[in-house]
Amino acid sequence: MNEKDAQFIEQFLNNELNETEVKTFNFRLKNDVDFAKEFNLYKEVNDTLSKRFSDKDRENELKETLTILGEKYVKPNKNNSDAKPKIFFLQRYNKFLVAASLVIFATLLWFNDSKPNFSDYANYPNLELTTRSTTANNHIKKAENSFNNKDYEAAQKELEILLKTDRTKVELQLYLAICLMEQNHFNKADKLLKKISNGNSVYKDKAIWYLALSKLKQERYKKCKEYLKKIPKDSSEYADAQDLLSRL
C-alpha cells in the first residue's frame, strides 16, 4: 500500500473526509479490488491491536484469576475436601484483586505509556558453562551458542537435557528460567526463579532480579516493585534495581 492510500484510509476511519471524498473512497472500495484488500487489512490490524492494547489491564486481571485457579485445580494432590473453604477465600480474594486492579487501572490509564520496557533491562550475561563432561559436552556447546544468539527455544531444549544429568546446578536452572521468561512461559519461569530466590546460592539475588523482570514483562508493576525492593544494597543487581524502581 502506498502512503497516500494509507493516509486516505486513516482519514476515512477517523471520519475526517468531506462528502465528495467519502464518495470517492467508497467508489474505490467497490471498484478497486486491491484497494479494498488493503483497506480490510489496515482496518483489521488497527481494530485488533487497538482493542488488545487498550484492554491489556483486563487481560492481566484475567491472568491473575487463571493463575490462582490453575494452582488450585491443575496442581497434583489437591482434593475436594480442602477446595471448599478456598472457593470462599478466593472469591473474596478475587474481589480484592478486581478492586485493586480497578484502582491501578484508573491510575495507569494515562501514565501507562511512560512505564519502562522489559527490553530495556533484559540484558543477560553470556552463558559460559565451565563444567565439562564428555557426555554433555555437545549439549553444553549448543546451549551456550543458542542462548548467546538469543535462540531461547533451542537453548531451553539443551538446558533441559543438561539438567537431567545435573538437576542441582543452579546456574543452569537460572538460565532455563530466562529462556522460559523470554518465551512468555511465565508460570514455569516464575516457579523456577522463586525456588532459586528462596535458596542460598550465589544466584539468589539474580533470581529476584529476573523475577522482577518477569513481572515487568507481564506488566504487573506492583509485583515488579515488590521484588525490586527485596534486592539488598550489596548485591550487583542493586543499581539496576534502583534505576528500574525510579522509573516505575
Binding site: M1, E3, D5, A6, L41, N46
Partner: peptide
C-alpha cells in the same frame, strides 16, 4: 498512516 502502511506491508 505511514507506520501502518509499513506494518501492513511487513504482515
Amino acid at each position: 498512516s505511514e507506520c501502518m502502511s509499513k506494518l501492513t506491508k511487513m504482515i
